[in-house]
Design a protein around this nucleic acid. Sequence first.
DNA 1: ATCGCAGCCTGTACGC
DNA 2: TGCGTACAGGCTGCGA
Length: 279
Amino acid sequence: MPELPEVEMVVRDLRAAGLAGAVIREVSVRWARLVAQPSPAAFARRLRGQRIQAVQRRAKWIVMPLKNGETLLAHLRMTGQIRIVPSRTPWDRHEHLGLTLDHGRELRFHDPRKFGRWWLVRDPSEILDHLGPEPIAARFSAEDFGQRLGARRRQLKPLLLDQTFLAGVGNIYADEALWEARLHPQRRTDTLSAVERTRLYHAIRRVLRQGIRFGGTSLGEGDGNFRRVHHRRGRNQSRLKVHQREGQPCPCCGTKIRRLTVGQRGTHFCPCCQTHSNQ
DNA sequence: ATCGCAGCCTGTACGC
DNA sequence: TGCGTACAGGCTGCGA
């Protein structure tokens, strides 16, 4: 699933492909509900002829400011992939959006689950304002994180997935960060010591940065799994310690990894390293 | 404030 | 082999 590191890889790939500076010649929406805002017709009309000025990332969002001041936004959700292909490439059955660019190229949005969404808005803050801090930003401090964490009374895992609390962490990196910090996913946020809060802060940043360093996490071989722009796979799956490793030994102590459902989410942890004390 | 659930989707994994 | 069913999950919206 594309989380912060995966979206970062896509954004870097799009920049390397020269998407910043490209002009959108034609717009083809083949699955109407993919366009969240405005109507598909207005989306196509207002996008046509526009130049993409930059390709940026905010949490799991791809943010593309246009020359006319509007902003194109994309969210890959579960299975969204962006591809750059030669114009007039035959459509794959899971490609639901096409942006014909200059220089004989076309951007295609591929999404088997159809959960991904695109927006065209005058002011991106109306969409992005609700998001919490960017966890790998320099200005994101351990003090601020620890203080906000202690002010809440929830289980750790669901709070890490709450995009208004912290923006960009998803199921994979939440499991990995909690293992790294040696904290039980169901531990209550207001029971952590100062040392544990700092440990979690560093663990989150470490697993996200490692995800980027290894090109993102591509679990499995299927069509719906994460792929970078030119269909490349990430390599971070080989670095995962607990996520999707139920029954396999913990790399730290050898205990079998267990799976729980926490806040309606599949959750993987080491019952030995991640203790439930204080809960 | 926090929680749980339905809904959005379809590929995959499973049982028979 | 083939069928049916359950499940996965990011996010929103709802009610408790």
